[in-house]
Structure formats: C-alpha cells, structure tokens
C-alpha cells in the first residue's frame, strides 16, 4: 500500500460500527493535519485486505465522506481528499467550550450530577444523529 498516507484500524470494543470508525478516523486525520488536500485514501481493496472487513463497509464510509464534501472519488483511480478540517474546527473549539461550560453550570444548578449530565448529553447526541440520518 505504498501510496496511501494513513492506515485504518478497528476497535471492536468501541461500540461504533466499523463504517463509523473509518469515517471518524478520516475526519480525525483531517483535523490533525495528517491528511491534506490531494492525498489519496487507501483503496477499498487495500483497506479490506488489511482489516479483513466487508468491502461495502469501506464503500459506505467513503460515500459518506464524499457526501460531506471531504473527499472525491475518481473512478478507476481512487478516492482523494478535497477539503481540510484543521483550521475551521480548531478555532471553533474555544467559543464552543465556553458555551458548554455555561451550560454545565446551568445543569448543575438544576440539580443534575455528572452522571446524569453525561447520560443526557449522550442520549441527545444519539437522537440528534439519528434525526440527521432520517
């Protein structure tokens, strides 16, 4: 797999489906600046041969990344990075964290403990994600 820049790995205990893990690892690599515009993602066959996972899983992950405008497929050649996540997301962290702090203070005042907050956050994240898909 000489040409590819990143290698995927699967954590079967993560609770995330293999397809979500691939999507997440590409996004992560973009955020960390490991992947740049123009880089080629490993081919489906390379990923499949390396991880022993279903080819449709990889295709689905790449399609989702394409849908998000992060990569583009060139038929017969491969899938290439077309965008970056690094700058935009890092600068957004500060203000978001501040907002979250304010929200946390509000939740504590309302009597929620850390566990309830975590449960509420995860549950909301999950339902929001499901509504996005639907």
């Amino acid at each position: 797999m000489g040409s590819s820049v990143i290698e995927f790995h699967l954590d079967q205990r993560s609770g995330l489906s293999p397809y979500r893990q691939v999507v997440r690892q590409v996004r992560q690599a973009l955020r960390l600046g490991l992947l740049h515009e123009g880089d080629q993602l490993p081919t489906v066959k390379e990923v499949v041969a390396q991880l022993a996972i279903n080819p449709n899983t990889v295709l689905k992950a790449y399609r989702e990344l394409e849908h998000e405008g992060l990569v583009a497929a060139r038929p017969g050649v491969g899938t290439f990075v077309t965008a970056t996540l690094a700058d935009a997301s890092l600068t957004a962290h500060g203000p978001l964290r501040q907002e979250l702090r304010r929200w946390l203070a509000k939740a504590h005042r309302a009597g929620l403990d850390d566990e309830s907050i975590e449960a509420l956050f995860l549950e909301t994240l999950r339902t929001a994600a499901q509504q996005d898909i639907a």
């Binding site: 489906v44 066959k45 499949v48 041969a49 390396q50 022993a52 996972i53 279903n54």
Partner: peptide, 8 residues
C-alpha cells in the same frame, strides 16, 4: 482478509 479481498 483473503475472502474480503475477493469480495472487493
């Protein structure tokens, strides 16, 4: 791995 490569 071999099986999935064939499926791909």
């Amino acid at each position: 791995q071999g099986l999935m490569e064939a499926a791909a």
